[in-house]
Simulated assay, not measured.
Amino acid sequence: MDLPPLSKDQLSAVLTSSRSPTELFNTLVEYEYEACLKSTPNSNESELLSLFYSTFFFAHLLTDQIYEARAMTQRMPQDLAQTDPSLQNCLILLRAVWQRKYESVYKILRELPWPDRLRPAVESYETYFQEKTLREVSRAYEAIRPAAAANYLGLDTAAAEQGDPAIIQKFTAVGWTWDGNKKLLHPKPLPPALGKDVRLYDEVSEIMALVGKYGG
């Protein structure tokens, strides 16, 4: 069945009705050619294109396609990428995710201005990023200071350092244990990951050049 024409309302509907990030991504793939056709010089569709490419960007992140997200930012209209606030924010976020700057990722998601229509994707990615990071930390550490653990999840590090029960409970609720005497959290052991995420990190210089060009 053919999809409805690309529009802001249709993008919002796709974003809220998709049953999984993969479904969202696959639907937006089907719309990319139409978006490309609208990406003409002096196009009056800049608001629609901004929403499409921003949503498509988050669909890449939600399906853990970081390298592919970088490639997508090169396909979108470059004049729009240089001037549109949402796409600028996406490029800033891409840099922080690529560099694994956890505190910056949460700050960007929570504090930079995002359009209301894009909010579901932004909030979904924050949750996804927290859960993914929690798994990575669980595999990397046998014991960790509360402030360090809180930093990975975008929580209040100062409160965590003081042993705030509300923050400690966020970890113990997922199976971690708390040693109050040593002031250490012990992650719940997880089985090794089935495969390593090989996302061509040797391309980091290219992505930094891209963000430096458009991200200010």
Rank of each mutant, 00 (worst) to 15 (best):
A59F: 11
P191Q: 03
L155W: 04
E123L: 10
A140P: 08
Y125T: 06
P85C: 01
A148G: 05
S50H: 03
S205Y: 07
K101L: 02
D9L: 10
E30N: 14
Q65W: 02
E161H: 14
L24M: 15
S17M: 12
I144Y: 10
T40R: 15
G215A: 09
L62R: 14
R95V: 05
E142L: 06
I92E: 00
A143G: 13
E126V: 13
S46P: 06
F52N: 06
K101I: 05
G212R: 02
A160T: 07
G180C: 00
Y128C: 04
L80M: 05
P85Y: 02
W114S: 05
E126I: 03
N44F: 07
L37R: 09
I168K: 02
A121T: 04
L48Q: 07
N89K: 01
K182R: 14
D202R: 10
L37N: 04
R145V: 13
M72L: 12
E34Q: 15
D2G: 11
M72T: 04
L190V: 10
P21S: 15
A140F: 05
R100Y: 13
Y214Q: 03
T27C: 14
W176K: 14
S20I: 00
K170Q: 13
I207R: 04
T172I: 14
R110V: 00
E32H: 04
S86N: 04
T27S: 15
L194N: 08
K8H: 09
K183Y: 01
C36T: 12
M1V: 13
G216M: 09
S18V: 03
L28R: 07
S39M: 02
C36Q: 09
V137N: 01
L109M: 04
D164E: 11
K170W: 01
R75D: 09
A143P: 01
T40D: 06
Q74D: 04
N151R: 13
Q78N: 10
S43W: 10
D179Q: 13
N181G: 02
A166G: 09
V174C: 12
F56L: 06
E206F: 14
R117H: 07
S17N: 12
F129R: 00
E23C: 06
P187T: 01
L24T: 11
L37H: 12
D156A: 07
K213I: 14
E30Q: 15
L37E: 10
A159F: 10
L28F: 02
E68I: 11
A96P: 00
Q82G: 04
G215T: 02
Y141T: 06
I108V: 15
Y102L: 03
K183L: 06
L190D: 03
R70H: 14
T83M: 09
Q169R: 15
R95C: 09
L112R: 11
T63N: 14
A149C: 03
K196F: 03
P115N: 11
S18T: 14
A158V: 13
Q88F: 05
L184R: 11
F171R: 01
Y33M: 06
N181V: 13
S20R: 13
P4D: 05
L200Y: 07
V97Y: 04
A209F: 05
F25T: 08
G163T: 04
P187A: 00
